Amino acid sequence: MANRIFLLAAALLAMSCSHGVTASDPSHLQDFCVADKTSQVRVNGLACKDAKDVVVEDFCYSGLHLAGNTTNKQGSIVTPVNVAQIGGLNTLGVSLVRIDYAPNGLNPPHTHPRSTEILTVLEGSLQVGFVTSNPENKHFNKVLGKGDVFVFPKGLVHYQFNNGATDAVAIAALSSQNPGVITMANAVFGSTPSIADGILTKAFQVENNVVDWMQGQF
């Protein structure tokens, strides 16, 4: 009997530890911790504002109903609502974005290192997809219409493309107050200082002039 109790306790402890390890952001230990954006203290997040200085505006953001400007090379724009916009999100482990797409607009292949993403199409049509990690590199992709929802697992490369003839709009929720974004092309060809041509020519099996041209785009 004692052995059974011990094994049960050990299993519960393992489950709780596993949950803590896989959580995207640490759980908060108080009602809220509104970010003090004037503080230089950084301990895997932002320091808390004094509770007596917290106001209702710390939990509110206005403007997500406004369309973003998609007149750029990609034909898309992301409007974030994370801890930088709402200080009250600090330690709560969630955020969201609005994404606007012109016809043929692309939110290019990128990853969120700290977050899973769940996307809902509000208007238009989107072709979306993600690719699993090495060595499989399996491509999951689907065309979404208004009201459709799609999940991009944490850390995997994913994209959205407006394959319709009209503007498209989506809202995406993310499982981190600060999910981060790494756009693949920007990181590889737009880094400062640049990655050496010899490394990129070998990685992509192309000539130097192709690498130089790609770097010139960023």
Results as ranks from 00 to 15, higher is better:
182 I>V: 13
204 F>S: 03
71 T>M: 02
83 V>L: 04
12 L>W: 11
63 G>K: 08
32 F>D: 08
16 S>Y: 03
155 G>Y: 07
194 S>V: 11
218 F>G: 02
101 Y>C: 10
125 S>F: 02
14 A>I: 13
160 Q>K: 08
151 V>W: 01
148 D>Q: 06
202 K>Q: 09
61 Y>M: 07
157 V>G: 06
177 Q>A: 15
42 R>D: 04
126 L>D: 05
202 K>T: 15
191 S>K: 05
55 V>P: 02
53 D>R: 07
170 A>Q: 06
169 V>S: 09
187 A>C: 02
55 V>E: 03
10 A>K: 01
210 V>C: 08
164 G>L: 14
96 L>N: 02
165 A>D: 12
136 E>Y: 12
18 S>D: 03
43 V>I: 06
113 P>G: 06
142 K>A: 05
170 A>E: 08
156 L>S: 03
131 V>G: 07
54 V>C: 06
180 G>D: 01
143 V>C: 02
200 L>D: 00
141 N>Y: 15
61 Y>Q: 07
19 H>P: 00
134 N>C: 04
180 G>V: 00
55 V>C: 07
195 I>N: 01
103 P>F: 12
71 T>K: 13
48 C>M: 13
118 I>R: 11
57 E>V: 02
146 K>P: 03
50 D>M: 11
184 M>L: 15
158 H>Y: 09
88 G>D: 00
122 L>P: 14
48 C>V: 03
151 V>T: 10
189 F>Q: 08
93 G>K: 09
158 H>F: 08
45 G>N: 11
139 H>S: 03
35 A>G: 05
113 P>K: 07
151 V>L: 02
59 F>K: 04
46 L>S: 14
202 K>I: 10
72 N>L: 12
61 Y>G: 00
190 G>H: 07
76 S>W: 01
60 C>M: 12
133 S>E: 15
47 A>E: 14
83 V>D: 04
16 S>E: 12
71 T>V: 05
31 D>Y: 09
45 G>Y: 13
35 A>R: 01
137 N>F: 15
207 E>L: 01
155 G>T: 01
208 N>T: 05
72 N>E: 11
181 V>E: 12
169 V>E: 07
160 Q>G: 10
19 H>Y: 13
102 A>P: 04
83 V>P: 01
37 K>L: 04
185 A>T: 09
149 V>F: 11
176 S>Y: 00
124 G>E: 15
33 C>Q: 11
33 C>T: 09
44 N>Y: 09
51 A>P: 15
189 F>R: 05
204 F>E: 11
71 T>C: 02
94 V>T: 10
145 G>H: 09
186 N>C: 09
13 L>N: 01
55 V>H: 01
49 K>N: 11
60 C>V: 10
190 G>Y: 08
65 H>K: 08
161 F>T: 05
175 S>D: 10
179 P>D: 12
59 F>V: 12
153 P>N: 00
132 T>P: 11
149 V>S: 10
8 L>W: 02
1 M>N: 14
174 L>Q: 13
140 F>V: 15
61 Y>P: 00
42 R>K: 12
